[in-house]
Write a protein that binds this DNA or RNA. Structure first.
Length: 139
DNA sequence: GCCAACGTTGGC
DNA sequence: GCCAACGTTGGC
């Protein structure tokens, strides 16, 4: 099974990338949307996940790795919802903003742009590589 | 802070 | 099973 790529959104006022770096890893709770839930369940250990700051910043700031596959969300008794464990892997040298993504021919069709309300979404390898490339330029 | 987009709920 | 009303998310 080839490695898959994902993007998760979080508001930095709630749980910023810097907090994930400090914590080393976290469980990704609070998903209450079926499409996002299905994506969480499809994540495999070792998959790489872009970390996007929504609302404040609106930019991709880092990469994390799935370290535990989906399990029952510990913050609710409702069996419908799951979490995965994510570990911070590396920060981008500089953030890749939503504005840049929209302007980039290779990225403008991302679910991030098309479906702004989805909080967990798959990303193609081409899109993933492209964002890493943009994010590796000097600040 | 406003508003558009979209998911969910509930009445019929 | 359809659709209107409502709530939430997220960009600006």
């Amino acid at each position: 099974m080839p490695k898959q790529y994902w993007l998760v959104k979080q508001e930095p006022t709630k749980y910023p990338w810097s907090q994930l770096v400090k914590d080393k890893k976290t469980y990704w709770d609070g998903v209450r949307n079926y499409q996002a839930r299905n994506n969480l369940q499809a994540m495999k250990k070792g998959d790489l996940v872009l970390y996007y700051h929504s609302v404040v910043g609106t930019e991709v700031v880092g990469v994390c790795e799935v370290v535990r596959e989906s399990y029952q969300d510990p913050t609710t008794d409702d069996e419908r919802w799951v979490v995965v464990d994510l570990a911070a892997k590396k920060a981008l040298k500089r953030p890749v903003t939503l504005a840049e993504i929209k302007e980039d021919d290779a990225l403008a069709d991302m679910a991030l742009v098309k479906q702004s309300r989805l909080s967990v979404m798959p990303v193609t390898k081409a899109e993933f590589d492209r964002i890493l490339k943009l994010g590796s330029k000097a600040a």
